[in-house]
Amino acid sequence: MKKMTRDDLEKCAQNTCQSTQYIKVGMSTCGIAAGAQDVFDIFAKEVKTRDINVNVCKTGCIGMCHAEPVVEVAVEGLPAVMYGGVTKEVALRILEEHVCGKRFVNDHIFDLPVRR
């Protein structure tokens, strides 16, 4: 692979390489212990079978251990939000109501006040 230079890095920093539509599953030890792998698999499978244009990806621990598994969802036209306590059932609801129906799912949004 080509070795990078400083310029390459600065160019990369301008890119937002994440797509605008994504489902991001918290997959650290705590998330996985709470069932994040299953949730990830469901999303990946359903997105594929239903041919939805959304990127299913993993990320680390956001810190909300009491709410694991945690999933961040962004679809066009809606602000990104964080869902907690995502079981398989909730995952399916997120897909249907939020991703496809563009309506947030009740009672599962965990909105942490964080300054970055």
């Binding site: 709410a67 907690g84 799912v105 009740n106 009672d107 949004i109 965990f110 909105d111 942490l112 006040p113």
Partner: peptide, 8 residues
């Protein structure tokens, strides 16, 4: 939408 937790 009903949230589960707003951190407040």
């Amino acid at each position: 939408v009903r949230a589960a937790d707003l951190g407040i």
